[in-house]
């Protein structure tokens, strides 16, 4: 069961990257809402993934995105940051009776009260750092904050829809 899950996760990661690079690149909701679906790989990685793999994977993923976005290391920085923060967020949000070894990160198993704070923290950290680096201009702080906020909202909606869609299967 576990092997099967990881296999599915891997396919989802590849699909999310392709969708990100070919379709979501130029998409912006109301000018300010960007969708970074490639974070699926970090957000949904199995709970027991060793942090080293997570960080290295985050770096490779971010660097790939940088090549396509002409952002020179900004995506890599933000993605490595959330990959590193993930275990800390886990510790912070531990459910009362700890994590079940077999459970995966999904809306179905973790419930709303865990899933949304987790997703929100991951996405907001990533987006805020990314937009601040990208703007590289103190005058644009408010704009970056607005972009990060709206993008997090959009991300929450998209990831939730994907979760609900998965649940139906």
């Amino acid at each position: 069961m576990s092997a099967n899950f990881q296999y599915k996760w891997l396919i989802a990661v590849v699909v999310s990257i392709v969708v990100q690079l070919l379709f979501l690149r130029d998409l912006a909701l109301f000018y300010y809402g960007f969708c970074f679906i490639y974070l699926w790989a970090i957000v949904k990685a199995p709970i027991d993934t060793p942090p080293v793999y997570l960080i290295l994977g985050g770096f490779a993923l971010g660097w790939l995105l940088d090549i396509f976005y002409n952002t020179h290391g900004m995506h890599a920085f933000a993605t490595v940051l959330v990959a590193w923060l993930r275990p800390a967020i886990f510790k912070f949000l531990t459910p009362a009776n700890g994590y079940d070894e077999r459970s995966s990160i999904s809306l179905d198993e973790m419930k709303w009260m865990w899933f949304f704070p987790y997703l929100g923290m991951m996405l907001f950290t990533h987006h805020l750092v990314l937009f601040l680096l990208e703007a590289s201009n103190a005058n644009l702080f408010g704009l970056s904050l607005l972009k990060a906020f709206l993008s997090t909202l959009l991300g929450l909606i998209v990831f939730t829809l994907l979760e609900l869609f998965n649940k139906g299967k």
């Binding site: 960080i55 290295l56 290391g73 920085f77 590193w84």
Partner: peptide
């Protein structure tokens, strides 16, 4: 983490 962040920032 620090190493990779360093590489990213250097690139930025």
């Amino acid at each position: 983490f620090v190493l990779l962040q360093g590489i990213s920032l250097w690139s930025v």
